[in-house]
């Protein structure tokens, strides 16, 4: 489904990612781990076409998407939940969902499905999104990305700053999406939050992949992973 070959990204002339290569299959969860500033968010942004200068190849569903304009990426079926949610904070919940539906024709059906998944948002459709609680904002960020009906979902620290009940709800949603066949590329800081949902783990350090493992291997032996993360 997603094939990344020698992805190199720059901010101005500074090389942030160095020859990243990995694959992600349908219905699988690939988790990117790494310390702050390692290049995890830049990896997701590069896949979304939001980094000015990239090299290498990104192939999604057999089509080369590297180099195309950022606004064409969601049309291909890639949804994105940015770090810090990045809601359109002065727009209502409904307007945020409308933005998510821009690339889809059967908007009303999709919106209903998404609101069935997050019923609390249905009660708050007219509320300005910036006034929602942190957990509700994260739900909305996820719901907005799901409005694209993605076959690949990029999640950047979706549980950051959330209370345990919300983390469990987000985790449940990820598992449900995985069951539906959505491929998920998940960036996380908290190892324990992802071990039970990830299929594969990638550790990035200074823009390069330094460790890869199947999640079940890591479950058996944490030590090596933790040594890379400095835990």
């Amino acid at each position: 489904m997603l094939k990344v070959e020698n992805l190199t990204s720059y901010y101005s002339n500074i090389k942030i990612l160095k020859n990243l290569s990995f694959n992600l299959e349908k219905g699988k969860v690939l988790c990117l781990l790494g310390r702050n500033g390692a290049g995890k968010t830049t990896t997701l942004k590069s896949l979304m076409g939001l980094v000015d200068k990239t090299e290498g190849k990104i192939i999604f569903n057999g089509e080369k998407i590297s180099g195309i304009s950022a606004h064409l990426i969601p049309q291909k079926g890639i949804g994105y939940v940015p770090q810090g949610r990045r809601l359109f904070s002065e727009l209502t919940v409904e307007e945020n969902l409308e933005i998510g539906l821009l690339t889809r024709k059967k908007g009303e059906n999709i919106k209903n499905n998404v609101l069935t998944m997050f019923p609390r948002l249905r009660e708050r459709l007219d509320q300005i999104s910036g006034t929602l609680s942190g957990g509700e904002q994260q739900m909305l960020a996820l719901a907005r990305a799901l409005c694209i009906e993605p076959s690949l979902l990029l999640l950047d620290e979706p549980t950051e700053g959330l209370q345990p009940s919300m983390i469990s709800l987000i985790r449940k949603s990820i598992l449900e999406l995985k069951k539906q066949g959505v491929a998920i590329l998940l960036v996380e800081q908290r190892v324990e939050a992802i071990l039970s949902i990830a299929d594969e783990i990638l550790v990035i350090e200074n823009g390069s992949i330094v460790y890869t493992a199947e999640a079940n291997e890591v479950v058996k032996d944490h030590k090596k992973l933790y040594s890379f993360l400095g835990v």
Binding site: L50, A70, H71, P74, R86, E90, L91, E95, I99, L102
Partner: peptide, 16 residues
């Protein structure tokens, strides 16, 4: 309005 609030995120949702 979406572009005004966050142009990068707007692009990620298909706004040219």
């Amino acid at each position: 309005r979406a572009t005004q609030l966050d142009s990068e995120t707007a692009q990620a949702f298909g706004i040219p």
